[in-house]
């Protein structure tokens, strides 16, 4: 899949874009005053098309994007911030001055908020600031993480995410505060057992719970993981999901009720009577050998592996 994507990107870059797409790119280039950052229309078109091909215009890889989908994707890019970021990465002093005026305070404030202290926050922000300026070199050339900004989200949001990622990685690498379960390899998909284990319905309950959790949708598993495993509040989860806190609360309540019902029904289908199923539902969770975190990690999509491979092949540095 990575090869297919990479090939499509190279093919798209070489080909002439459709007239509608070319017209839109030109309009954006003119309206964003790209010339002030020494961005030619050809360079800007190439950058946009490269990003569009990288993400497949935001569509599923099974279907080629239509012209409206292409236009929507290009129109949804933060093109002005994209040009600023790439101009900074290319060493434009004007772009860098503008970047400092606009985002320097954002970087430090976000670092303080993420690190939780001024000292750690300043250290985190200074580290990123130096990297953004291009102090890192690869093959004798400056490599700025700003090249990895593709305009899918806002530049301040990308900066916050980079800061958060660095902070988390630092903690996981040095702090050892995180649970070992989180850095373990994803668990293997549990094999369905047809026979009741010697421990009776306790083992049967474990199997039913695992099966039920595996059947959950991605958003439901995210909700359960964030709330029960990470200890996030409903307000935080609602902010990430873009819903109201009460909506998240209702969704979680319905989800837990549905889980109980599905587990109870699964126990009944496995041969337990109603009373036995009720007793199994009253089991102390400490008696169950169910690694919920591992079960929820099973469904990680492999799509990002392709992207990371492509990024590595393309020579783009990790943040």
């Amino acid at each position: 899949m990575a090869e297919e994507r990479n090939g499509r990107a190279q093919r798209s870059a070489a080909e002439v874009p459709p007239p509608e797409v070319a017209r839109l790119i030109r309009e954006i280039w003119e309206s964003r005053a790209a010339g002030s950052f020494r961005f030619s229309l050809e360079e800007f078109t190439e950058l946009i098309l490269r990003i569009a091909d990288r993400y497949g215009y935001g569509c599923a890889p099974t279907e080629p994007p239509s012209i409206p989908e292409q236009l929507a994707f290009i129109h949804g890019l933060h093109s002005e911030e994209l040009m600023l970021a790439h101009a900074c990465a290319q060493g434009s002093e004007a772009a860098w001055e503008r970047f400092m005026v606009l985002y320097r305070e954002t970087i430090y404030r976000s670092a303080y908020a993420i690190a939780g202290s001024d000292t750690a926050g300043r250290e985190l922000a200074d580290s990123l600031y130096a990297d953004l300026y291009g102090l890192q070199t690869r093959d004798g050339a400056r490599r700025s993480p700003l090249l990895l900004y593709h305009g899918r989200g806002s530049l301040p949001g990308w900066l916050r995410s980079v800061l958060a990622q660095r902070f988390v990685d630092t903690l996981r690498r040095t702090g050892r505060e995180t649970s070992l379960d989180e850095i373990e390899e994803p668990a293997q998909t549990p094999q369905a057992e047809t026979e009741v284990s010697p421990r009776g319905w306790l083992v049967l309950a474990q199997q039913v719970i695992q099966k039920t959790l595996l059947e959950l949708a991605a958003e439901e598993r995210f909700l359960l993981s964030a709330y029960y495993l990470d200890g996030r509040t409903l307000k935080q989860i609602a902010c990430v999901l873009g819903v109201h806190e009460s909506t998240a609360s209702r969704t979680l309540s319905r989800l837990t009720d549905a889980l109980r019902k599905q587990i109870r029904d699964g126990l009944r289908r496995a041969g337990l009577s109603r009373r036995e199923a009720e007793e199994a539902m009253q089991t102390d969770v400490r008696d169950l050998d169910v690694q919920v975190g591992k079960i929820l990690q099973v469904h990680q999509s492999a799509a990002f592996q392709d992207q990371q491979v492509m990024a590595a092949e393309g020579g783009e540095a990790d943040v």
Partner: peptide, 27 residues
Amino acid sequence: HERQQIMEHLAGCPRCRQVVFLAQQAA
């Protein structure tokens, strides 16, 4: 498609969940 992919990953990746929540907390 992309949102579903990210959601799938976040449901099973505590690191990325932490990144997302920290970034959201700092906004």
